[in-house]
Computed example of a mutant assay.
Amino acid sequence: MSSGPGTEFRFGVNEISPEADWPERAREAERLGYDVLGTTDHLGLSAPFPSLVAAAAVTTRLEVATYLTNASLWDDEVLAREIAGTDRLTGGRLSVGLHAGWTGSAATAALTPQDKRDRLAETVDVLDRLLTDPGHLPRPVSTPRPRLMIGVGEPEDLDLAASRADTVVFIGASLPPGGDLVLLGPDEFAAQVNTVRQRAAELGRSPELNVGVKKVIVTDDRKAAAEALRPAFAPHLTANQLLDLPTLFIGTHEEIAEQVRSGYDRYGLTSYMVLSAHLYDFAPVIPLLRKG
Score class of each variant (00 low, 15 high):
V182D: 01
V211K: 02
S262I: 07
A109L: 13
A29V: 03
Q259T: 14
D21A: 09
S2I: 15
D187C: 00
Q241R: 02
T252P: 08
E254V: 13
L248I: 03
R222P: 06
L158H: 04
K116A: 05
V96G: 09
N70Q: 13
T66P: 08
L130Y: 04
G153P: 03
T132Y: 07
N240M: 11
L183N: 05
H236Y: 07
A283H: 02
A121D: 01
A55D: 00
D128E: 15
V216W: 06
D265P: 03
L137G: 09
G179I: 01
E202D: 14
P207N: 00
E208N: 11
I171M: 14
M1I: 10
I217M: 11
A283W: 00
L184R: 13
S46C: 08
L73M: 10
D118T: 13
A65R: 13
G172D: 03
A257I: 10
D35S: 04
P176L: 01
V274F: 04
D221L: 13
A100K: 11
T103P: 00
W22D: 00
L120F: 05
D265W: 00
M273D: 08
W74D: 06
P113F: 08
L131V: 08
P287T: 05
A165R: 07
I256K: 05
R164D: 04
G204F: 08
V64G: 09
V168M: 06
I150P: 04
K214E: 09
L68V: 15
F249W: 14
F49V: 03
L62G: 03
S163M: 12
A277N: 13
V36P: 06
S276G: 14
S174L: 11
D187Y: 07
T108K: 07
E63S: 15
E154S: 13
G135P: 02
V36K: 10
D125S: 14
D220F: 10
R266F: 06
G104M: 11
T60F: 01
L120T: 01
A226N: 07
G178F: 01
M273L: 15
D187M: 11
A65G: 05
N14M: 15
R25L: 02
V169S: 13
A26I: 08
M149C: 14
H42T: 08
L32N: 03
G92L: 10
A106D: 15
I286W: 06
T270I: 01
Y280G: 10
G292W: 05
P140K: 08
L45D: 00
L79W: 04
G179W: 00
R119S: 01
G179L: 04
L289G: 03
L79S: 03
W102N: 14
S51P: 04
A162H: 09
V126P: 01
S174W: 00
F233V: 11
A201N: 07
A228L: 14
E122P: 00
A121W: 02
E208D: 14
Q198C: 11
L288Y: 02
P134E: 07
L79F: 07
L52C: 01
E254K: 12
R27E: 05
T167P: 07
V213M: 04
K291I: 10
T238C: 10
R119V: 11
A55R: 03
R139K: 12
T59W: 03
L127C: 08
F49W: 10
S271C: 12
F249C: 10
L130R: 11
P5H: 02
F282H: 01
T69E: 04
R145N: 09
G91A: 10
T39C: 06
A226G: 09
A162N: 11
S95V: 08
G204K: 06
V211F: 06
E227S: 14
G204Y: 01
